[in-house]
Structure formats: structure tokens, C-alpha cells
Nucleic acid binder design. Structure first.
Lengths: 386, 386
DNA sequence: GGACTTAGTAAACTGCGTAGCATTATTCTG
DNA sequence: CAGAATAATGCTACGCAGTTTACTAAGTCC
């Protein structure tokens, strides 16, 4: 813990940042409001916000029709479109690229189907193409992007590479960070999809009120993302949450109970077959009900291991199967009650299949924030990778 | 994230704190050294440290025989004995009270055997007695204590009560915080023993270099304490790490493999019997070796669940059985390799049975630090519970 | 149209850290 | 033993940032 001494110029930086944070994420504010929110005096808030305007971080909104007594106040607004970030979900079947501004407002997004068999080069080329289209439609170029986060399936190491295992064919050889670095000089980060989806739930999903969250990505593959004390935890080697590797936890095979159900039309893809089972169970088919029951029973052991380890406030049930959460949540809750000392809240995700890309956006925004906080506040330009 | 504006007086507080932190945990420092360490100018460091002396936080050491040319510098020293904290381990068989100063230097400690059958009132009376003796021998009274942390076996809720379960007879009715509050007005905290032992390993034990640690308390009871990103994690309900509750994890019964061994002298207590098994295994007794092997195999499943969930840098094997770590570490490492994606380092604790009390001291010191950091720096007196 | 309310602006004031220089206390050197 | 070299201390002038206070500007309300 190394605190360093402060002098007046640093104090000014801090206050300027403080005004910037007070400006952000709220409706356009008057100087008086800013002063109140920062604890600074009005004159101080005034010169600081004017400096922000001069630097390009804020813009003025001249007073319009006043609704209250007294002289109408100028309002200042954070220039959310001073920069943008990209959130990218590279999946087996699809590529999703989302673009948002510095306040997280969505600007553009594009989903493309992907060839499940495609190798890394082909897949990355498709990603490039999708990025290009998004940028073009938004009227932007690479330098306008301040940070990028990419989500991929499977464990990701600190350099963004998937060394251990991945369902994406040939992806172990891929180096997505290096690939994107050719065109983008901003910070680039690659992260596991479950972890990003967990972040998204806390940002815009059903877990906004919690600091300790276990996110379940439930689909043909089962995974988890952990948020502890409000921060995404990767673990020392980036494989936190991979409880499915434990044999006593039958996560790997739990979805087999669903796909083995014979009621689905032959020729249906495994994912569709699972949807059939849920639908059949909903309609009362007893074989389907048993399959779902067994799936939940196996799933619950792993969830219980995560819950007992972390004692989270909320468990979010997300992923492809979360559309059938109505069948899963109550039985899963009962199973957890058998195993756990304290049963956390169980909620179903509502972010459909945008969770990963949304979480990627959030992490990219966090990167921008960190850079803004650490360095002095220069004019708004894309931070460079160093 | 609410940043608040800073004015000059706050800046001064911050700089004063910065000097205080620079002063602490180092040999007595000259003003020039302090200036270098804080980044402040020499005159600024000078007036700040003199203020600290006036407030009682620091003291001057007049220059003695100088070893270098030039005018000898006055040296300033943090007054570590301006306050003290207590760390208390309330166990089934013993009570351990430790007293240290603000830099964590041990001042006094006292261990008392406890009656395993004793109820809460009796046990707390013994604790009081031990505290009294420690304070008397150190020449102190209750107001000299700035913070207290107590470790007990079993899950502890945020109020310091053991609602769920505890091996201490009748302890669910006990309210140790309220009991101590009668005599002490400082912050008091009660925490689970495994968690405290984990903290101790990072402070003075074998895990000082790590930020992500799983601590195993291995004895007749098996438990775990988790440190993630350098911070102790309690979980939302205070039961993080209690993986033993899961039936698929056979932690509760794992030590039975040891105590069931028939080679120990009849009449030996269970703990002694376990030691016998380890000794017999060390000497080549095949039944004992099998017992140890089975113990490790069952233990490993739970450890693997923790490791897969958290992906820590280090697993520390502590608790009563850690004296036999020579027999356990290698086989346990092999077992973990079977289960885990990435096997963390495995180390044996060396803190013997002082770990819990040491961790309690560390948490008490952390409480003092937090109070110092948040409030303005007044003269050094015991912070009051509010 | 005058009273009232609120925003914007400009001054004087206070406090803090810095820079630079004189002073002091030692050791080194001839 | 005296003088040079060295390094810490003490003091003063300076600049900067935020606060306070007072005054002006621009609206609404009655």
C-alpha cells in the first residue's frame, strides 16, 4: 500500500475527474447540481466543467424554456460519443459485434451466422468483416475505437489464447489479440464467454443489485462465471469456475439426459433436440419430465459446489437453456436446498444470446475507465496499447 | 463510484496519511527519505512529520553517532505502541490470546487449556480471564486496545454468532461480540477459524507472495478459508468455503479413515489416534498407509472442487494434521493433478497452532487501518464502536 | 412592473506545497 | 587544529487552487 503525496496540480486533476464522474450517467446537469454532487463550491465546479468543455469531454446545452423560477441554468452534458468501444462474441455458430459509446448506449450491432467447422483464419476473417460492417454503418474507423473485448468459448489465458481446450475447431492455434492488434492500437482483451455473460448480468441483467454472483451458462456445454465483491474473478490461471472438470460433478454429461430423449424429430440438431425435450416436459410427457429431472439433478451438484465454495447472493441461470427456465428454476432450487447450507437466490437470465457481447462491452468500458482514472485527463483520444 | 471533490485541508490529510504510511513498517527514517518515499518536497514532509509527532503518531530519535559525512539527520519513527490489538482463538480444547502493537509486533500471548465440555458462559469467562492476564502482564487496560478479532470454529454470521452449527457445546446461544462489548468499546469482530488461519498464512506464513489462496484446515474437522485478490472472502452469508457440506465431497468422513485405524492404543483421543496412524504409515505399516491414502483421496475431491472453482495460486495445507504434511503433500498433489485443469502450488503451513490467533491479529490491524484511512487523522486513541 | 429566485461572474482571502537560499552540524583533509 | 566539503535544517517568497462574498444578469410570480 504505497500512498503517494499530492500537490495542487494533482488535486486539480482529481477534482476534474470528480466532476467528470458526476457528469456521467446522469441527465444534463447544471453547475449547481455538479457542485452539490462533487462537494465542491460552485465557482470551482464552474471552472472545472468549462475546462472539460474546452478539452472535449463535455458539451454545453444552452438553456431552453425554463420550467422553474429564477434564471435558467446552462446545462452540461458528458460527451458520451467522444469515444466508443467494441464488444465481440465469437461463438461456434454465430459472430456478434456490438458497438457502444462511453456511457454504454448501444450504437450499432451486427449478428452473422458462422460456419461451425470454420478454422481460426476463416473465423477471424468473418469477425473482421463483421467489425468492418459495424464500423462503416456507424460511420467510424479503427482510431475511433478506444477498447475492444472479445468473448470466446472455453478457458482463456492472460494473453487471450485458448490453450487448454475449446470447442472452436483449431482455435488453440489462434491468437485473436495479435490478429486485432494489426488494425487496432487500443487495448484489446479476450475473455471466456461465461465470465463475460456474468458481467453482463450485473450490468444490465437480473443481478444488478448483487456483488457476489454465480452465473451459469447452461446449454449443450455447461460453464460458470464468478463475480465476487463486484469484480469478475478469473483465477490465477484464468480457469476459475471450471467446476465441470471434476468427475464427481457430472456437468459434462448432464445435457446428455436431454439430448438422449428420443421424442425429438430425427435429424434435429442437439440444441433443437433439447428444446424439444423441454417443450415435451412442459406438455406433460413423462419421459421428457424424467430427462429434465435428471439433467437438473446432475446440474445441481456442480452448482452446489460453486455455491458452497463462494456463498454468493445470487445464482443466475443463463445460456441457451434459460429459455426453459420455467421448468428448471423451481426444481433446481429444491435440489440446491438439499446440498447447501444457505441457498442463494436463483434467477433466470433475460439477456437472451446477447449476454456475452454485452459483458464484453462492459469490460471494454471498464478498461477505458481505468485508463482515465490512472492517467491525467488529457483531451479525449483513444488510449494506446503500451 | 462516487468520487468526491477535494479541497486543501483534505489534501493535507491525505499527505499526512501518506507520510504516516511511509513511516510505518520501516526503520526510523530521515525527512529526506520520507520526502523521497512520498513524492513530497522536503519542507512538506518536514512539517507533516512534525505534526505527526505533535499528535503522538510518531516520535523523534535524536541523531546519535553518525556514520556518514555531513550533518546527521534526525530520524522519525512510527509509534507502533500508540495502540494495540487483540487476536483471540477460542477453540474446543484451548484458548489463545495474543496482543500486538500497531505494526504487528507481538507483545504478549497466553495459551490456556479449555474444558471441551464447557458451555458458553464458562468458556467466555475463561476467555475473559485470559484476556485479563494478558493485559495485566503487558501493563495495559481495556481502553488501550483498539480492535479485537476472535476466531471460533464453525460458520459465523455477520454479527459474530454461530447460528448454523458449531462443535463448541451450546455455542449457538453465545453472543461473543455482545459479551466483549461490555468491557471493550473498540471494534470487535468474530470470524471463522479457517478464514483467520488463511489470513495468517498470507501475513506471516507460507503464502506471503500470493493473492489467491485456498487454505485447508485439516484435522478431525476439515474446513477451508479463501483469499481472493488479497482479501478474505466471507461470502454473502459468511459460509464461503464450506464445501464439506456437499455429500459428493466426503470431507466430513475423510478423517474417519484415520481414526478407524486399530493400531493406536485404546483410550487415545481421536486426535492422538490420527497422529498414531501417520507415524505408523511413516514406519511402513501397510494398513496405516492405506488409511492415509484413503483419507487423502477423499480430501482431494473437496480440494479439487475449491481449486476448480477459484483457480488459486496456492493451496496451503494447515491445521492439526499439517505436522504430517510430509506424508500428505505429494500424494495430495498427485490426486489434484487427476482432477484439476491447472494444479496450484501446494504448501504446508508452518504456523503450528497459532495461525488462527495470528489471523485474528491481522484482521484487527486491518480494522484499525481502515478507520485511520477513512476518517481524518486525529490524535491516536482507540477508535470507538459506532 | 416590482418582488423574488436562481445563475453567472469577479473580486479578495486562505491554505498548502514548492523553490531557493542561508544556517548549522558534522566529517574529511592537510 | 583550521578550513573545506557535505548534508540536514530552517526560513521566506511565490504560485496555485478552492472558498467566500458580493454583485450583476435573467428569468418567474403576483
Amino acid at each position: 500500500m504505497a500512498m503517494s503525496g499530492t500537490d495542487l496540480s494533482r488535486m486539480r486533476e482529481m477534482n476534474q475527474l470528480s466532476v467528470l464522474w458526476a457528469l456521467r450517467g446522469t441527465a444534463p446537469s447544471t453547475v449547481t447540481e455538479l457542485a452539490g454532487r462533487t462537494g465542491l463550491s460552485r465557482p470551482a465546479a464552474d471552472v472545472l466543467v468549462q475546462q472539460l468543455v474546452a478539452d472535449g469531454w463535455a458539451e454545453v446545452e444552452e438553456p431552453g424554456a425554463s420550467s422553474t423560477v429564477g434564471r435558467p441554468a446552462r446545462r452540461y452534458r458528458f460527451r458520451a460519443n467522444a469515444g466508443h468501444v467494441l464488444g465481440i462474441d465469437i461463438g461456434v455458430h454465430k459472430i456478434l459485434v456490438m458497438l457502444c459509446d462511453l456511457e454504454g448506449n448501444p450504437v450499432q450491432s451486427l449478428r452473422r451466422p458462422a460456419d461451425p467447422q470454420a478454422g481460426p483464419a476463416e473465423r477471424l476473417a468473418a469477425v473482421d468483416q463483421t467489425i468492418d460492417d459495424v464500423l462503416r454503418e456507424a460511420g467510424m474507423a479503427a482510431p475511433d475505437i478506444w477498447a475492444i473485448t472479445v468473448g470466446v468459448t472455453g478457458p482463456v489465458d492472460e494473453n487471450g489464447r485458448s490453450i487448454i481446450s475449446t470447442p472452436l475447431p483449431g482455435w488453440r492455434e489462434a491468437d485473436p489479440v495479435a490478429h486485432l492488434r494489426i488494425r487496432f492500437t487500443c487495448p484489446i482483451r479476450v475473455e471466456n464467454d461465461c465470465k463475460l455473460a456474468a458481467v453482463a448480468e450485473r450490468w444490465k441483467g437480473v443481478a444488478q443489485d448483487a456483488d457476489d454472483i454465480v452465473y451459469l451458462l447452461a446449454g449443450l456445454r455447461t460453464g460458470a462465471g464468478l463475480i465476487i465483491d463486484g469484480t469478475l474473478r478469473r483465477g490465477h490461471g484464468g480457469v476459475a469456475g471450471e467446476i465441470g472438470a471434476l468427475k464427481a460433478v457430472r456437468w459434462l454429461n448432464a445435457p446428455d439426459h436431454l439430448t438422449a430423449y428420443s421424442g425429438a424429430p430425427s435429424g434435429a440438431k442437439p440444441g433443437e433436440a433439447a428444446a424439444w425435450v423441454f417443450q415435451a416436459a412442459r406438455e406433460g410427457d413423462s419421459a421428457a419430465k424424467t430427462a429434465v429431472q435428471r439433467y437438473i439433478r446432475d446440474l445441481a451438484v456442480g452448482v452446489a459446489a460453486l455455491v458452497l465454495t463462494l456463498d454468493p447472493q445470487i445464482v443466475v441461470y443463463g445460456g441457451g437453456f434459460s429459455r426453459s427456465a420455467d421448468l428448471v428454476l423451481d426444481p433446481l432450487r429444491r435440489e440446491l436446498a438439499k446440498h447447501c447450507l444457505r441457498v442463494p437466490e436463483l434467477r433466470a437470465s433475460t439477456l437472451s444470446d446477447e449476454g456475452v457481447a454485452l459483458g464484453a462491452l462492459r469490460l471494454a468500458l471498464d478498461q477505458v475507465d481505468n485508463i482515465l482514472l490512472s492517467s491525467q485527463l488529457a483531451a479525449p483520444v483513444a488510449p494506446q496499447f503500451s
